[in-house]
Design a protein around this nucleic acid. Structure first.
Lengths: 179, 179
DNA sequence: GTCTATAGGGTGATAGAC
DNA sequence: GTCTATCACCCTATAGAC
């Protein structure tokens, strides 16, 4: 792929990914994308039709990355509880929030089928994966919601504490149902 | 307060509240606020110094309203589990998301102490209230996170289903630890 | 209190030279 | 492929008349 980001196209996608994460879709301008990528205006419009197309490429790439990271925990060794613990406690930049979950709050994202679909697919994939491990779809969805909600509480508090508490809580509850 | 919204000031705060909910802080312009309120430019700048001050007034009002609604469930009759159930299952416009939680994703909100503080206070209040009922701060935070995360999953799926599943899951887990 | 006029800068995109 | 020029419009706010 664009592992070295020597190419213009790859750099554009990468800077869009960063900006979408930091400022959301509405808060990200083509100009900011170009500047961060060190690429001119004409160059950007040569590779992409505009901001929407760029955002789709960025979100799809972030979604793929997130799935890969989750899989490396959930498919790892150990019991179901141990795998889920590894997933929930994996290193995260909590105060930055979830690059996928954050898009969900953007009005122009949920309105666009192409932009919303990768988000829906990612969460469906995670929920299915977690359902296999906990054996119950409702509880699997609760685990996922706890994670996403943990980010929200952490950003409101400007502290990782509520995130950690929420994870501790769900793991304590899970320990009672998973043998 | 502004129950009838006959006054200009009250209409401005109300339209700001709606727009912040629908489009977030970055996505809301003074012009849009004026138009929705049916108020002219000069009028808005007479009552408020600008968008930030307007947003603070709107967020503080939304936070107060949310606390009141939550209290009416959490302070109601019944066991701890029944009260929490009433709170989590209370009528909501799930796909619109949480008016407080959604602000959390806005870069210009978490950066502003005056805007972030009401969010932090609201969640602290809710967490404390829930802690009294479930007797454990971690698990109380998990309940709150499940709710906030449920909104995120619902918006991604453009469906209430994951929200309902997450709530069902946490209630099933709570039933095992409460009395 | 409310109105219109004006301003300086940004947005998202197109055109055409190189 | 990349660059600069240009565009119509929006953003946030100030000024000053009424």
């Amino acid at each position: 792929m664009y592992t070295r980001l020597v190419d213009t196209r790859g750099r554009l996608v990468e800077s869009t990914r960063e900006l979408l994460w930091e400022r959301g879709y509405v808060g990200t301008s083509p100009k900011a994308i170009q500047q961060r990528a060190g690429v001119g205006q004409g160059s950007m419009y040569h590779h992409f039709s505009g901001k929407p197309e760029l955002a789709v490429a960025a979100v799809e790439r972030s979604a793929a990355e997130l799935r890969a990271a989750a899989a490396s925990c959930l498919d790892g060794p150990g019991s179901a509880l141990e795998r889920i613990t590894a997933y929930l406690r994996r290193e995260r930049d909590v105060l930055k929030g979830c690059p996928i979950g954050r898009m969900t709050q953007d009005p122009d994202v949920v309105t666009s089928p192409e932009l919303r679909q990768p988000l829906a697919d990612t969460f469906t994939w995670l929920r299915d994966r977690l359902t296999e491990l906990v054996g119950d779809e409702d509880i699997a969805t609760t685990v996922l919601a706890t994670l996403q909600g943990g980010y929200v509480l952490a950003r409101a508090a400007e502290s990782v504490e509520p995130f950690d508490q929420a994870i501790n809580g769900i793991l304590a509850l899970l320990a009672r149902v998973l043998d």
